[in-house]
Design a protein around this nucleic acid. Structure first.
Lengths: 201, 201
DNA sequence: GAATCTATAGACCGGTCGGTCCAGTTGTCA
DNA sequence: TGACAACTGGACCGACCGGTCTATAGATTC
């Protein structure tokens, strides 16, 4: 929210945490590694994030959510057909994963699975992020003429498929699970979109 | 594979690790916690798993994969309609998550996202598990008359949706993401199955 | 230019981490 | 019954964990 915050150490810390979440999750990295990546000493981190590691993670999740949202909005604006937009955007994630040697996946997924019900702030931030994500997709579909309820459900399926396909590709060291998932899903989506268009005509 | 292995400490260790993987992932738990759960001292674990924590994790993944496979086969046998079978089986996972206060998800997903490309054995075991899982579903669909390629893709989508929906439900503390995902997916699946039946007639 | 606040810097801490080592116990088979 | 392997039990280790603390440097304000 505080967009006027001076860029610098704080953002470098968030960036380094974001990076680590993509690669190994929250418990997979030590503070020392994050601090090293961000070129920052310890004190400065507890200055900006008094709550420590978890606090920084929440900030990184929020930054990640904002970034995902922005990039999705961008492809939506560039492609009139929702199916095309989703395909492009999915391709981005897929290429990032592949180019990194199957190291970099979704920054939200790993920490989601490491979190316990006690991690209130963490799960809150994550739930909000995924919720916003689903809503964005649902709005896209509703805008293409699909009914509200069906758009919501379809959006849930799309986001689920997105996360799940990245998990599988990651461990397989192969893009095939993503490609198979996307091809089938987009095929079904196009039928859905065609039906929506027809029933409006 | 060694099914004649005497039950006892070794299995208790695997069980405890399996449990932890569901709840917090690999790095989220210390050996001491696992050892405490399994009521076993340290030495015994390095006797059965010379490779340490990672070694035990691989064994737990293999055990988990076998368990998932068995339970899926069971519901498949009990329900002639593939869509019904998947619905029941998804319901099991969903209930386990809910009953545990959104603590217990898929035992494979968390460690998948924590793993790095260097964790060869780990990713191998995981890739094999997910692959077997997809294959099982694909066979089920092919058996219902859906073409081979389409069955493969649809299976990838189903497994992806399964994993992704559990992630979202977990952080949301709500079953809604799972319900939405399943309802939409099974609706599409039923159409697919009807088409397959028709084109065979 | 003293006071104050924000930010940087890193030494330091107790605790826990994964892992090693070896001394006992138990089971098995000659 | 003696030998030997499989297994159990836990003390012990150095490394690293997340976190605290104090010192100081720059900026801002009166």
């Amino acid at each position: 929210m505080k967009t006027t915050e001076a860029p610098g150490t704080r953002d470098r810390l968030i960036g380094a945490m974001f990076d680590s979440l993509q690669r190994k999750g929250l418990h997979g990295v030590g503070l020392s590694e994050i601090l090293h990546d961000a070129q920052a000493p310890k004190g400065v981190m507890y200055h900006h994030f008094p709550g420590g590691k978890a606090d920084l993670a929440v900030a990184a999740i929020e930054a990640g959510a904002a970034q995902i949202k922005a990039s999705l909005l961008q492809v939506i604006e560039a492609h009139a057909d929702p199916a095309d937009a989703l395909k492009i955007w999915w391709g981005h994630a897929h290429k990032r994963l592949e180019r990194s040697g199957f190291e970099r996946g979704c920054p939200l997924a790993a920490i989601s699975l490491e979190s316990t019900p006690d991690d209130i702030a963490l799960r809150d931030a994550l739930a909000q992020a995924f919720g916003a994500f689903r809503e964005l997709v649902a709005d896209l579909l509703a805008g293409a003429g699909i009914g509200a309820k069906r758009s919501t459900q379809l959006a849930a399926l799309i986001v689920s498929a997105y996360e799940g396909s990245l998990i599988q590709a990651r461990v397989a060291g192969s893009a095939k699970p993503v490609n198979d998932t996307v091809e089938m899903l987009l095929g079904l989506l196009r039928i859905e979109l065609a039906n929506a268009k027809e029933s409006r005509a």
